[in-house]
């Protein structure tokens, strides 16, 4: 009874790299490889469909569009690691962008952004208390909180109807501008944020606890972890990230509306799932999610370059998400 339960199978006479088992093991140990391969395949397909489309400008456009999605998918990744999900990100992101646009005229940018972050944190705090202390299922809690935030934003819209406002220039610069027309300014926000998440998940006690609670809440509890503390902070972090994404989206589109980021919610979950984060908790990471967000953005661009009507694009997009997620789970699963 000593040693490894699933011992490596005996090497066959054939080249081990050609066996399905070898590939499967590679994919299981390095789940990001098949994702990068798929991304490369999609880029090649784009070039095939519309020769010449793949150029530095196109790459810049893809990055610029992918950044807000990748941040919102980060909210899903962190919450999904604990077995949760955050469906309030759409409303929180839209509301934050809208709040900044309405406040910036009177209060200045710094105060407007601070106010939006504080409001988002409060929403996250309430969600966290609901999920962590009162044990409301995250799906219900975040859907409900999303509705509450949306309602408050609507009310705020009525109150502020007289102030014109609009997306401040600084947000437009960071959301849609790029260095030399290629490297998006939004990377100035995204790269540090992504590094904090990537390192935080691996090398902080808090990151370890997210995985622990998602993998086995009983074991985490028996080891002395108080899950509610972890969960409350988690949903605050998620809401603040959603607010940051909201600023970028409103800068990218030059629009401030209470439903601005709603269409990002499903893709953000899909990007995390395609990126290999288990919706059951305990498995995954942010690296895969970033690639997942890029994959989805390229698919959207590919579909629109094919010139299909909107309805067909939506059907194809949904079908592709499901197919990719199913295939990915299969090729990286334990044999």
């Amino acid at each position: 009874m000593s040693g490894v339960a699933s011992a490596p199978s005996a090497p066959s006479a054939r080249n081990p790299w050609l066996t399905a088992t070898a590939w499967r093991r590679l994919f299981r140990d390095r789940p990001i490889l098949p994702l990068l391969a798929l991304l490369a395949l999609l880029v090649a397909l784009s070039e095939l469909v519309r020769p010449g489309i793949v150029n530095p400008n196109w790459a810049g456009f893809i990055l610029r569009t992918a950044v807000p999605l990748a941040i919102l998918a980060g909210c899903q990744t962190l919450t999904m690691l604990t077995g949760g999900i955050d469906l309030s990100v759409g409303a929180v992101a839209s509301g934050s962008g809208f709040l900044v646009a309405t406040l910036v005229g009177d209060q200045g940018l710094a105060v407007a952004i601070l106010a939006a972050v504080v409001v988002a944190s409060l929403a996250g705090l309430l969600t966290g208390i609901g999920v962590g202390v009162f044990r409301v299922h995250p799906l219900i809690m975040t859907l409900g909180m999303g509705l509450v935030v949306f309602g408050l934003a609507n009310w705020w819209q009525l109150v502020m109807v007289q102030t014109g406002g609009g997306t401040p220039d600084e947000l437009r610069w960071i959301g849609s501008g790029s260095f030399m027309g290629i490297v998006p300014h939004s990377l100035l926000v995204f790269v540090p944020l992504a590094l904090v998440i990537l390192v935080g998940l691996r090398r902080t006690g808090y990151g370890r606890l997210l995985y622990a609670i998602g993998d086995n809440p009983v074991a985490a509890r028996l080891s002395g972890a108080r899950a509610w503390q972890v969960i409350v902070l988690l949903y605050v972090i998620s809401a603040v990230m959603a607010a940051i994404a909201g600023f970028l989206v409103s800068g990218l589109t030059n629009v401030a509306s209470v439903t601005l980021a709603d269409s990002y919610v499903l893709p953000s979950v899909a990007a995390a799932v395609i990126g290999g984060t288990s919706i059951m908790g305990g498995r995954g990471g942010y690296g895969g999610t970033i690639v997942g967000a890029l994959i989805l953005t390229v698919i959207i661009s590919l579909l629109s370059s094919l010139g299909y009507p909107e309805a067909v694009r939506q059907v194809l997009f949904g079908a592709i998400i499901v197919t990719v997620a199913a295939a990915y789970t299969r090729i990286t699963a334990e044999s």
């Binding site: 006690g205 370890r208 995985y211 993998d215 086995n216 074991a219 972890a225 305990g282």
Partner: peptide, 17 residues
């Protein structure tokens, strides 16, 4: 145990709670 996590993370779990 955290079945999907490493031996190291499992042993170190109480350190970070």
């Amino acid at each position: 145990l955290l079945m999907q996590r490493s031996v190291r993370e499992n042993i170190a779990l109480p350190f970070t709670t």
